[in-house]
Design a protein around this nucleic acid. Structure first.
Lengths: 349, 349
DNA sequence: ATGAAAGCGCTAACAT
DNA sequence: ATGTTAGCGCTTTCAT
């Protein structure tokens, strides 16, 4: 009937009383400064703490110390594998630094994002990590909010969203697409089409242009009608591919979709049209989501180190010195069965 | 040179001073009790707050009020689509209730889980949500930790982990597999094999046994060698399927893998063996992960409402009265091309 | 080495 | 309607 593990959370004072010492000593025993407290009392305090099931009130610590042990992570959609992988990396990094992660999702709404930054700021986190690529609209309100956070000593890092004046971890989409183009040329492909996303989307733009640039090096260019703008989704890829097929391929051998989900949609469209993906028409994507290896044929794509991006963002925020530092993480071309080597006989010069 | 948005975070006192009122009035103006403060001063305070970029120190609020506005979410692996979807649901639910989510991942380590619960307890969250199915080992330490948390007024809810004495949201794996079996029987299938996970894993067990029970209703049983135990992963599915093929199918028409990733592995194994999945051998899975529709042929499976599970867990924790209440969310059988209807001629009785 | 006391930013009686 | 005052749980001088 005197179970210590009952009632409201035990406080430091409870522990101190239980151990027969002052709160100050208890605090010292539990924290770093074990130095100035006798081994005997340390043992007593520790024992009392476990007996009572004591867990320090982090809010109280935060306010007394003037700093917290948390980092805030903001993503657009945690169910999206791209973001969940970034989140996993960020959480790893945070835990390695002994920090707890608080998280919020924007649902891709800029207003919501702003609101969230404001709320999160109230937690006084060590750092705020913003993950997600903006659609390119006005961000002054967000920038303001972040500025006052930073002015108060907060650290900010951004993942894949160059444009904000903070440490940024990103991937060279342009270069990745260029590399992909080169690899595909080496496989023997010469005639291409591109499925890209809505005009304003920066990532889409960079990838499409990078691909074009890669081809240009081999003096190959994209026929005007062969760049189709569509939704950044699987259905978008399906629709665009269907459209392309309807208009006639005109000799196109390979379709590059600016992301894997669109590519998967394109593959489905091919199959729906009675064609064999890979054989009748090659397909390549970008991102290397896990579905890329699940589809048949497995999808040639460009790997993006999402986990590493999350982790680096934490590092950048925590240790970063250079405000506007941009870390470019390398992508890697992954050739799979959706773009088999093409026999270009000696006839082709 | 006197930019207010500079230096350390402005405090309530700063706002009060700026507005020419007392801290108490500022507090009242900013919070609910707008009633007892003149509209005039409210305006003044609000104005001062925005001018200074004030964001209340949530830690201080928490300690003064004796309660926080956060809920803690613990998942095994946020990069796993199953958990990220649950997390998305939980975050939705939390935000609807005006709560911030703190998150930590266990990496499937029971020790880590324990450690995390202990740390998180320090945040004094409204509720702790535990997501993930235990492998069935000793959980007394965890139970202890949770008990003291609950004794202090914390709420606990568990997702898909029946066995802990807290509100639990789960899915009837047994029933889902039974339904699947019935649906497949209706499609005309009669001879089955099962790919299941390691023995102790409860989910795996329930699904395998449910499937067996479903077949038993039609007086069909699983040949002894036709239940293969393997890893709960894609490679596990691949290996088990390959093994099965090596030993001879003995007329088996359909393979049920207890989760989709294993099923995807099985599909790959079939293709590697030169067989056509769906046509030469039907395959069904469980979970309805997004990859299920990406593979070819699209995978017949049992849908699990992960998002809803996360959301319900929050509701349960926040409003739940009944300690040990268990919410069973319905699964749904989804027939796709990997299990085409089978023509069982009239010859078959 | 240890305790007493002040203070972190805020809220909530308690006055007025 | 508003200001004063006393905490909330903890850390950290400052004494001893």
């Amino acid at each position: 009937m005197d179970d210590p593990r009952t009632g409201p959370s035990p406080t430091l004072r409870d522990v101190a009383t239980e151990a027969g010492v002052s709160a100050a000593t208890a605090s010292r025993a539990l924290n770093g400064s074990t130095r100035n407290v006798s081994a005997e009392k340390v043992a007593l305090v520790l024992q009392a703490a476990t007996k009572l099931g004591y867990a320090p009130n982090l809010s109280a610590q935060a306010i007394a110390r003037g700093s917290t042990e948390t980092v805030a992570l903001i993503v657009h959609d945690i169910a999206d594998p791209y973001f969940s992988s970034i989140a996993a990396g960020a959480i790893d990094g945070a835990e390695a630094a002994g920090l707890t992660v608080t998280m919020a999702v924007t649902g891709r709404s800029p207003e919501r994002e702003l609101e969230i930054v404001s709320t999160l700021r109230g937690h006084r986190p060590h750092a705020i990590i913003l993950a997600g690529s903006r659609v390119g609209d006005d961000q002054t309100a967000l920038a303001d909010e972040l500025r006052t956070y930073e002015a108060a000593g907060g650290r900010v890092a951004v993942v894949s969203q160059p444009g904000l004046p903070y440490g940024t971890v990103t991937v060279d989409n342009r270069r990745g697409a260029e590399d992909l183009a080169a690899a595909l040329l080496a496989q023997g492909y010469r005639r291409f089409a591109v499925l890209r996303g809505p005009g304003r989307h920066r990532t889409s733009h960079d990838r499409a242009e990078g691909f074009r640039a890669g081809l240009a090096r081999a003096k190959i260019d994209l026929a005007p009608g062969m760049v189709v703008e569509t939704d950044f989704t699987e259905d978008g890829g399906h629709a665009a591919m269907t459209d392309l097929l309807g208009r006639g391929l005109a000799g196109v051998e390979l379709v590059f979709a600016v992301n894997d989900v669109m590519a998967v949609g394109a593959v489905r469209a091919l199959r729906d049209a009675g064609l064999v993906p890979g054989t009748d028409l090659a397909v390549a994507g970008f991102d290397d989501i896990s579905a890329a290896t699940d589809v048949a044929p497995a999808l040639t794509t460009v790997g993006v180190p999402t986990h590493a991006m999350g982790r680096r963002a934490i590092d950048l925020a925590l240790t970063g010195t250079d405000k506007g530092e941009v870390v470019w993480l390398p992508t890697n071309v992954i050739l799979r069965d959706s773009t088999p080597p093409r026999d270009t006989g000696p006839a082709r010069r």
